[in-house]
């Protein structure tokens, strides 16, 4: 089954979440409403809401509760993207102008804070303390992950462990708690919602590694932003760390990274990308992403065999092969 078929099967509930997302960020203040809806309308895979719904299928599926969790997680993700675009000084996302670019940094900050406020207003309607304990912890970790990413900008001596810890915080945790919170609000037993967490976590790790590879292999049209953005910004990702371990390219790649650092925003990254592509780095990163997918699939063995589990298997395969 293809990813689109999974979405088609869940279409009714996904549409309800989509409508709710639109309702929650539509505001009486016209400019705020337009800015908040701008990113929402640009689309996105809605992977977090899908994970919440699928997690909920392992317990008592109550769409009203699951919808609140799904909307919250997507809004938290959206708010962080609006702020990330100011952090990265990015002009485009998903092929569209960013909020900061269409308006300005100040409007982007207010819009992000507004969406975040609306997100937590939604989740506060869920009274289960466990949900808040897990979500708030993940949010703190996400912020720490972003700060750590900046700490290691242009640091070519960092370890793979360091990178993995960073993407765990930055990406994997929010995906992990998406499946987990779906299970928790559906009343799953701890053994089940912990398995759902581990599934989301491993898929999240693979997702970010693939995302970092796409930045080196994708076209602007495919990835919605200029390729090589990570390295231009100083974000040393796994393929780069691994390429730097390849004696054949280490020295010229280090020199290229230094040049990119010195030249700043407009630096050409094509030669650096070529070095990385010619090293073993990309292949090794790809292999590691696959290992995470295998782990995610193995975790699913601990969950009852149902249609949701089949969908989670398909999604894991999709993330493993993702090339757009």
């Amino acid at each position: 089954m293809k990813l689109l078929e999974i979405y088609a099967k869940m279409k009714g509930d996904i549409n309800k979440i989509e409508n709710e997302l639109e309702r929650v960020v539509s505001d009486e203040q016209p400019l705020l409403s337009e800015a908040a809806l701008h990113l929402l309308k640009a689309g996105g895979k809605r992977i977090r809401p899908v994970f919440v719904l699928l997690g909920g299928k392992f317990g008592t599926y109550n769409l009203d509760d699951l919808k609140k969790v799904a909307v919250t997680l997507e809004l938290i993700h959206m708010a962080s993207l609006v702020h990330d675009d100011v952090i990265d000084d990015a002009n485009t996302r998903r092929g569209q102008l960013t909020v900061k670019s269409k308006w300005d940094n100040r409007i982007a900050m207010y819009t992000g804070d507004y969406i975040h406020g609306q997100a937590l207003t939604q989740i506060a309607q869920i009274k289960n303390p466990k949900v808040h304990e897990m979500l708030s912890k993940a949010l703190v970790e996400m912020c720490i992950g972003e700060m750590e990413q900046i700490r290691y900008f242009f640091n070519t001596d960092q370890s793979i462990r360091n990178y993995l810890l960073r993407i765990r915080r930055k990406t994997a945790l929010l995906l992990a708690i998406s499946t987990q919170l779906g299970g928790i609000v559906a009343g799953c037993a701890p053994q089940q919602y912990n398995a759902l967490y581990r599934y989301g976590y491993n898929v999240g790790m693979a997702f970010q590694i693939r995302d970092d590879l796409l930045d080196l292999y994708g076209t602007e049209k495919q990835i919605g932003k200029p390729p090589g953005s990570d390295i231009r910004q100083g974000n040393i990702t796994l393929p780069v760390i691994l390429a730097l371990e390849d004696a054949q390219v280490r020295e010229p790649l280090l020199a290229e990274i230094k040049r990119i650092h010195d030249e700043g925003d407009r630096a050409d990254t094509s030669r650096a990308i070529e070095y990385i592509r010619n090293s073993e780095g990309s292949q090794l990163a790809d292999e590691l992403a696959n290992r995470y997918i295998e782990k995610a699939l193995a975790v699913l063995e601990h969950l009852p065999s149902n249609s949701a589990r089949k969908h989670l298997v398909e999604i894991a395969h999709f993330v493993g092969k993702r090339n757009y």
Binding site: Q118, L120, P129
Partner: peptide
């Protein structure tokens, strides 16, 4: 959020988060 979640103060999370949205509406 983490401090209020730890204390089980879920109602206050909602009240203050709504206020955050309101403040940002005023700011815009």
């Amino acid at each position: 959020y983490q401090l209020l979640a730890k204390a089980g103060e879920i109602e206050l999370i909602g009240l203050l988060s709504k206020a955050v949205a309101d403040v940002n509406r005023l700011k815009v």
